[in-house]
């Protein structure tokens, strides 16, 4: 019970900390919407030339486009690390690692709070404005909210790993850029994965990045059986969190026992 209260507080803290940046979030939502409009027109030109491409109708392709923009905030598609990255650089992470509450659970609660806030401030505007400007399809599956939440968890699991690697490297910019590249390209953010050629498509659809954008969008569109989609997301969520727990143990050994 006490643990539940702690994580609820952390969730609220994450939510509230981001809500102080409302103006920034709305500016981000505006930029996401502008990009949504630009990309939507490119997809419209493509789908008008090739109707039914990747199994989507024109309206579905446009919907997909605005959903990817709406996911940028909550899923952190540009691959930005978690807030404790700064604490690794300053060495304060040692205090976090010896706390009785595990760092993984601790930061997950906080990150879910952040995602919840950004869903309101950065996901709703592009979706609503997109629907007002273009023909979009409404979500067909009641499973979408769950799939969306699982997408956030997978995104968290990935970013947790990326952030923790800073314990072993002095310059972490390379790894962060690599993360941004992989996430943007293989999540479906740049183009729907269904447009990728043969083997690239197979690889992309198996990676965890697909679970962040492509899969939740497909659940919204009803393009994939929901249980299969959720199973795929759950698998990656469990795998990444498991890896995260292992890496935390290694980080504690490195930072606390060896003293950095």
């Amino acid at each position: 019970m006490a643990a539940f209260v702690l994580y609820l507080r952390l969730f609220q803290y994450g939510f509230r900390r981001h809500s102080t940046y409302l103006a920034a979030a709305l500016a981000g939502a505006f930029t996401n919407t502008v990009f949504g409009v630009l990309r939507a027109y490119v997809l419209i030109a493509l789908w008008e030339a090739r109707p039914g491409l990747a199994g989507y109708t024109l309206a579905e392709a446009v919907t997909f486009c605005f959903l990817t923009q709406a996911f940028i905030g909550p899923m952190q598609v540009f691959g930005r690390g978690l807030s404790f990255g700064d604490r690794i650089r300053s060495g304060d992470i040692a205090f976090d690692l010896v706390r009785p509450a595990p760092l993984l659970a601790w930061s997950l609660a906080e990150d879910l709070g952040r995602a919840a806030y950004l869903t309101l401030a950065r996901s709703l505007p592009p979706t609503i404005i997109g629907a007002a400007l273009f023909t979009m399809v409404a979500p067909v599956s009641p499973w979408f909210p769950l799939s969306f939440a699982l997408g956030v968890v997978v995104s968290f699991g990935w970013r947790y790993l990326v952030t923790l690697t800073s314990c072993w490297t002095t310059d972490d910019r390379g790894i962060h850029t690599l993360s941004a590249l992989l996430t943007m390209f293989f999540s479906g953010m740049v183009l729907p994965l269904g447009l990728f050629p043969g083997w690239l498509r197979t690889v992309a659809e198996a990676l965890p990045f697909a679970a962040m954008v492509q899969v939740p969008a497909d659940v919204w569109l009803g393009a994939e059986p929901p249980l299969q989609a959720l199973g795929f997301q759950l698998l990656w969520a469990v795998a990444l969190m498991g890896l995260g727990a292992l890496l935390t143990v290694a980080a504690r050994r490195k930072v606390v026992v060896q003293g950095g």
Binding site: A45, L46, A49, R50, L53, L191, L195, F196, P197
Partner: peptide
């Protein structure tokens, strides 16, 4: 990738 599917855009 777009031009894998079309010849003109």
């Amino acid at each position: 990738i777009v031009f894998l599917h079309v010849t003109t855009l």
